[in-house]
Design a protein around this nucleic acid. Sequence first.
DNA 1: CGTTGCGTTGATGCTTGTCAACGAACGTGG
DNA 2: CCACGTTCGTTGACAAGCATCAACGCAACG
Lengths: 242, 242
Amino acid sequence: MQTQHAFSASRPAPGFIPALAPHPDDGTDDAPAGLTALGAVATLRRGTAAYREGDLASHWYRVVSGTGCTSKLLPDGRRQIGAFLHAGDFFGFEALQEHGFAAEALTDMVVIRYPRQRAESAGDADPTLNAFLREIACRSLTCAYERLLTLGRRTATERVASFLLELASTAPDGRTVSLAMSRSDIGDYLGLTLETVSRTLAALKHDDLIDMAGPHSLVLLDRPALEEMTEGDEPAVRFGRA
Amino acid sequence: MQTQHAFSASRPAPGFIPALAPHPDDGTDDAPAGLTALGAVATLRRGTAAYREGDLASHWYRVVSGTGCTSKLLPDGRRQIGAFLHAGDFFGFEALQEHGFAAEALTDMVVIRYPRQRAESAGDADPTLNAFLREIACRSLTCAYERLLTLGRRTATERVASFLLELASTAPDGRTVSLAMSRSDIGDYLGLTLETVSRTLAALKHDDLIDMAGPHSLVLLDRPALEEMTEGDEPAVRFGRA
DNA sequence: CGTTGCGTTGATGCTTGTCAACGAACGTGG
DNA sequence: CCACGTTCGTTGACAAGCATCAACGCAACG
């Protein structure tokens, strides 16, 4: 996908302001006032980039709605997705000077942009905000390390199963998952090819571990079995979620 | 390796105090005074753990001398090494409550332990320390993401080449590397088997890209060729180094 | 001087990637 | 409204890269 670099608005669009409030499915994830005061709403059209590799890291971000991903490309086109970005997730913290990963919208997105220098200064004077930022960084690191284990040591089936459980962990009923991303995106997230992802999902369906209404809508039928497949010991935690 | 949980000393051992000073090969990496004041020296024997998965995250750590690694196990014994820890590296920041990864000494190690709560409080009152901690977190995240790309998308040869370049990046001459870890450790770091690591190193030697005096002492003969093999665009940065 | 741990090398096979074909869904323009 | 191209997901056949299993040499050590 050819991404373009574009924000459509740097000031709140009226229709989106309600989304700035805490998300209904998670009462604990709104930012401290010191950070919220700095945020500006922006919208990102599907396929456009919030920033690219090498861009100056001038802002931190938070997803209001829609889904995106951070990704990095090798010169020959191989791609690794660092994280999927869902409503409530923070991103853009990984950079000191320049972004090492690009961030791109997989669907139309609404995000909040926080000017980084001002946010850092605010943190210096506000222990609550400071703790909040530390927590985001910690969670991001924990997630990244968990993913190292997945990419380094798990089989294709285990990877897909852990991915489904990760998505289901934020579903209201814990079992209904809607995939906003393509098979290719999932493959690039899990270090697999899109064909392997497709085949693995088909196998899980054949074994009655999941059900698929359409390619982007599925239900976990046997969560314990899926959890056992990942051989993991702790629940999946999503990237950057405070 | 059966790791044991043991610190041999919680107060400075006379012989090690000089190592607390900035490391001779890097004048920029000593901690702010506010953090240094909280540190207590401890020694770790080879094969012992600073902490294990599930331990309460009560401290942050910094390596004074020796080398270690953070690692995570699957129930069936598969292991993923999150990072190798060298002199100057900070570790233990990834945990909010409990450690998700264990940290273990691969050689005898000297580390500094910083009580986490006191360090966090100190950070709240000290912008310099605060920025320092942010920087460590950023670098750790950048490293982790770079490693996601390696584990998810690079071939065995590319992984080994990038590993060697990573090690060489802190060598005085940029080409002489001494491997403190075993082939098995390298494999667990790169998501490969120890046999593949051994074979890949042999192939690199055969192609005159590296020279091996012994299994743990090698020299990069053709850095440009190795860099091209990784297909990466930016220099390797080591975990947690400020 | 036997034992143990580690690194190397070989033979073999499995998991996953690659290449290809096909169908469904979607948008576009005649 | 329908032909058309495009994108995406699925499935099959095949190949390759790496894992697995195994044997051997060497150095360290009690």
